[in-house]
Amino acid sequence: MNTTLSHLLRFRRDQGGEGVISAAIVVLIMALLGAAMWSAFNGIFVDATTDIQNTVDSIGS
Rank of each mutant, 00 (worst) to 15 (best):
M1P: 01
N2V: 04
T3N: 08
T4C: 04
S6W: 05
S6T: 11
S6G: 02
S6K: 13
L8I: 08
L8Y: 04
L9F: 08
L9M: 10
F11C: 08
R12W: 12
D14H: 04
G16Y: 07
G17D: 02
E18H: 09
V20E: 11
S22R: 13
S22I: 06
S22N: 12
A24W: 01
A24R: 13
I25E: 08
I25C: 03
V26T: 12
V26S: 09
V26H: 04
V27I: 14
V27N: 04
L28E: 08
I29F: 02
I29D: 00
I29M: 05
I29Q: 01
M30A: 15
A31H: 00
A31E: 01
L32C: 15
L33N: 04
L33G: 01
L33S: 10
L33Y: 03
G34W: 03
G34T: 10
A35Y: 02
A35C: 10
A36E: 04
W38R: 07
W38S: 13
S39M: 10
A40P: 00
A40I: 13
A40D: 05
A40N: 06
F41W: 12
N42L: 12
G43Q: 07
G43K: 11
I44D: 02
V46L: 07
D47F: 12
A48R: 06
A48K: 11
T49R: 15
T49D: 14
D51F: 07
D51M: 06
I52M: 12
I52H: 09
I52C: 05
Q53E: 15
Q53M: 08
Q53Y: 06
Q53T: 14
N54G: 01
T55H: 07
T55E: 12
D57E: 13
D57M: 03
S58G: 03
I59Y: 01
I59Q: 02
G60Q: 14
G60Y: 11
S61D: 03
